[in-house]
Design a protein around this nucleic acid. Structure first.
Length: 418
DNA sequence: ACAATGGTCC
DNA sequence: ACTCGGACCATTGTA
């Protein structure tokens, strides 16, 4: 079907996903060349602090285990936890080779032994040290700037980042902010961070023409709270934090083609309970339910689905007789138009913004793109004006059936700008 | 060199 | 029996 004759209207008429990709390429090359400035000393100091912490935790783990072993080896970890310490394996997921020692699984037995908590801490610290704190300072150029490579070869149309990947820099957890604060503006400059608020949910609301969701977004409601009030049948002002958390997972799941099992895993609840939530959600969101069925039908019939701007994703195994293969591609049929359209919206905004900055603020430079976020470096004196311009370009790049919201911040580093 | 496992982001 | 979308990268352990 043609999205455009429904309730969507694109401001830049008749541009295709192919044209978007051609036009974004030179923009990405400029961003790669610009690079982002890193405070290496900050990262090195944090490295020293956390390495010291890590060593202490490591010896704690040895003491609790009764001997030394390689804590980074899942095989040895499994031996220690489940053979030697005989911790319960009942509710834990299995891998091909044995019992999983993934953090999500270990949390289930955290109260059964004092060793679990330091293991989780060890994992957190070693991840940060080996993936971010150690490598990044070795990769900066003579101006302390870090240059990533952006690619367009993803199956949904998203932009990816590698060598190094600057799209998975920590933000949550105890040290997320600390690490992001090492991404800094040059002297006399500021960083601007601008991100779309719930762009994928807005996109799916419009693609699915889900009246309930559309009204909610038009009224500027807290969408997760709204969903919570629907599935728990309580008024908006009586939503608990826990109910909102569940509703948020349900909303996310919609975009992913969720199953009761998947939701149950995400929330650590009974599959039957998860199924109740989902069923109740679909009772209220007929548009979403129809959208899902339509995409799956289309994929089965045509062998592909497409985004708003016409990017096709072929799903050759959707008619497989192997259930989980076919079901996996059904979920892609649901997710790809949503994720792909959202990524097209950001790419189009980047193209437009590049034009505007080049013409009006040639000293301002786009540096990073993180799926629904842009980071721009700009002379201090222009920061406020450019921040407003970035926000407007992102907001007005396309007219959806509902308003698009963009939040923007200014700071001396990435953490501050968010 | 490669598979398996685990973990970070949106 | 087994699962929710899209990426990249580090470590271990085997080939």
């Amino acid at each position: 079907m043609n999205w455009k004759d429904k309730n969507l209207d694109i401001k830049t008429p008749s541009i295709t996903s192919e044209q978007i990709n051609e036009q974004i390429k030179p923009v990405l090359r400029k961003m790669e060349q610009a690079g982002i400035r890193i405070d290496c000393n900050h990262l090195k100091k944090l490295d020293e602090t956390l390495t010291e912490k890590l060593n202490k935790i490591e010896s704690d783990i040895y003491n609790l285990a009764g001997h030394e072993f390689n804590v980074s080896s899942p095989i040895q970890m499994s031996e220690v936890l489940f053979t030697e310490l005989k911790l319960p394996t009942g509710e834990l997921k299995k891998t091909k080779t044995g019992i999983s020692t993934a953090a999500s699984e270990l949390k289930k037995i955290e109260k059964d032994h004092k060793i679990i908590s330091p293991i989780l801490e060890y994992r957190e610290l070693s991840k940060l040290i080996s993936t971010y704190l150690k490598p990044l300072p070795t990769l900066v150029d003579e101006n302390s700037r870090l240059h990533t490579s952006y690619g367009l070869e993803t199956s949904t149309g998203r932009i990816n980042s590698s060598e190094p990947n600057l799209q998975n820099i920590p933000i949550r957890g105890k040290y997320g902010e600390e690490i992001r604060s090492a991404f800094i503006a040059s002297p006399g400059m500021k960083l601007i961070s601008a991100d779309y608020s719930q762009i994928e949910l807005r996109v799916v609301a419009c693609l699915a023409n889900d009246q309930n969701m559309i009204v909610s977004f038009q009224n500027g409601e807290d969408i997760h709270a709204r969903t919570a009030s629907e599935i728990f049948e309580v008024s908006l002002d009586k939503i608990t934090a826990e109910q909102r958390r569940v509703a948020k997972a349900v909303n996310f799941g919609i975009v992913y083609g969720q199953t009761p099992f998947g939701l149950s895993q995400a929330l650590s609840i009974e599959t039957s309970k998860a199924a109740e939530y989902i069923n109740h959600y679909f009772d209220i969101h007929k548009g979403i339910k129809e959208y899902i069925n339509k995409m799956i039908d289309r994929a089965h019939t045509d062998g592909y689905v497409e985004t708003l701007f016409g990017m096709k994703r072929y799903l050759p195994n959707i008619n497989s007789t192997i259930r989980h293969i076919a079901e996996s591609e059904e979920r892609m049929a649901i997710n790809t138009p949503v994720q792909g359209t959202a990524s097209e919206i950001l790419k189009l905004a980047m193209i437009n913004l590049d034009g505007k900055l080049t013409a009006q603020y040639p000293e301002a430079k786009m540096l990073l793109t993180v799926h629904d976020e842009l980071v721009v470096e700009v002379p201090q004196k222009d920061a406020k004006k450019v921040a407003q311009a970035v926000k407007e370009v992102m907001r007005d790049v396309i007219k959806l059936c509902i308003p698009i919201e963009v939040s923007v911040g200014i700071g001396n580093n990435w953490a501050e700008a968010k």
